[in-house]
Design a protein around this nucleic acid. Sequence first.
DNA 1: TAGTGGTCTAGACCACTCC
DNA 2: GAGTGGTCTAGACCACTAG
Lengths: 254, 254
Amino acid sequence: MGHPKGQETHHSRILDALLQKIVSGAWPPGFQLDRETDLAAQFCVSRMTMNKVLTQLAQDGYVVRRRRSGTFVAKARTQSAVMAINNVADEVAALGRRHRWRLDAREVRKLGAADLRLLGVRRASVPEDALSLSGVHFADDEPFCFEMRAINLHVVPGAQGVGFDREVPGSWLLQTMPWSTARNSVRAVNVHGRDAGRLDLPDGTACLEILRKTEIGGDWVTYARLLYPGEAFQLTAEFEPKAAQDGAAPETGG
Amino acid sequence: MGHPKGQETHHSRILDALLQKIVSGAWPPGFQLDRETDLAAQFCVSRMTMNKVLTQLAQDGYVVRRRRSGTFVAKARTQSAVMAINNVADEVAALGRRHRWRLDAREVRKLGAADLRLLGVRRASVPEDALSLSGVHFADDEPFCFEMRAINLHVVPGAQGVGFDREVPGSWLLQTMPWSTARNSVRAVNVHGRDAGRLDLPDGTACLEILRKTEIGGDWVTYARLLYPGEAFQLTAEFEPKAAQDGAAPETGG
DNA sequence: TAGTGGTCTAGACCACTCC
DNA sequence: GAGTGGTCTAGACCACTAG
């Protein structure tokens, strides 16, 4: 409920007041708020200002608004986690440790079935010419993450001219392809053989495996497989209450 | 860039137009937009409408706005994942499988040091009277998740009257304590002994361990430890580009 | 100190939907 | 048909900050 900086505006004052009613339970899920014009009068502001507040509450999922019926405290809820993920270099830096990247392999080729399986690709997304990379990220000279990656050279032709022995692939791509979207999946795996050796771990150690597919404009940009020693790394996420977008029946009955 | 429903408003039309310039790279990071009044004139709308659009772009992290200097396409970026997490019962249902909950233990007691360590509690947050629960979630009669949980009876006294042999703790809490916030951390662990047995897994199997602390108004509501067989479960998250909140230096040179 | 964004207003018209 | 939210305007004053 805190507003980071800037002085009190009507907007923030009213937002806090309404939010307090909602999260405290004084206005339970399903509760009908007064109409926009009445609330505006109660708080001595114009309807535009009150509308801005209520619109924001609706966007944040705290209330549901329906023409002709009114504004209701949201009912169906879910937990929504916002997890900031930069890239491995930034993760290491954020831990206050020194990051180093060691490139182990770099070649241009078409992706084979084995590559696709490892990278978690399901449909054969037309195995284009790809730059295939693998290497290890170190934190204070300790293996922190094994990375294998394919970069679509049809989408990012510039990658062919980059050595990636100094440039970290993830950081380079983030700068080169702004506004790309990614889909990640996270699971736990027992590492064996070469994967274990790459991270200097005993056979069978639990690791977090992140499979990441990055897209832009419908084309895949890069597939990445990141392997973190389970004990040394953890994802954290802040969860905030959020109303479900659908199924939020605004019945007053509760 | 699509707007789910509702007809074209000036707002959405302009938002799409500006967003297209940004994500397409026509306006690269650091690019200075025209001033609010000029953009309003160019799009033939009032300054208020244009302000609303630019404010939203700024809130979404696509641009950075500074008084007296202007509006700039954001530079420093990070990937921000929005991960919707309900509770185990919903997760199982979402997979199209039948959920069953088996309560294994239920007792009221103060939390000991061992409990706190297991639940990932660092500071001794005043071990209040707690309802301690543990049990297993099944998906189609297959162990899906082992859960151990402590509920703060000072914050949720009503929990004492609930058996939790039929009620699933997570679902019950979500309904009972709306608008609580949670902090999750995810890591991979090798399960041994009792933990392995609870999930019917061989010793040493990699599992995802989620430690969840739920708070409301500064008090802890519940600590939970959720253990998922690594192979059978994966977290997925959609990532969208987002500008970093700080450090977004609006230099035009960049 | 001048120029930019930040906020607010009073009023208006429109779209949707429950009755 | 009537009442609710959705959107938009023209104008105004204020706050911040780069120059």
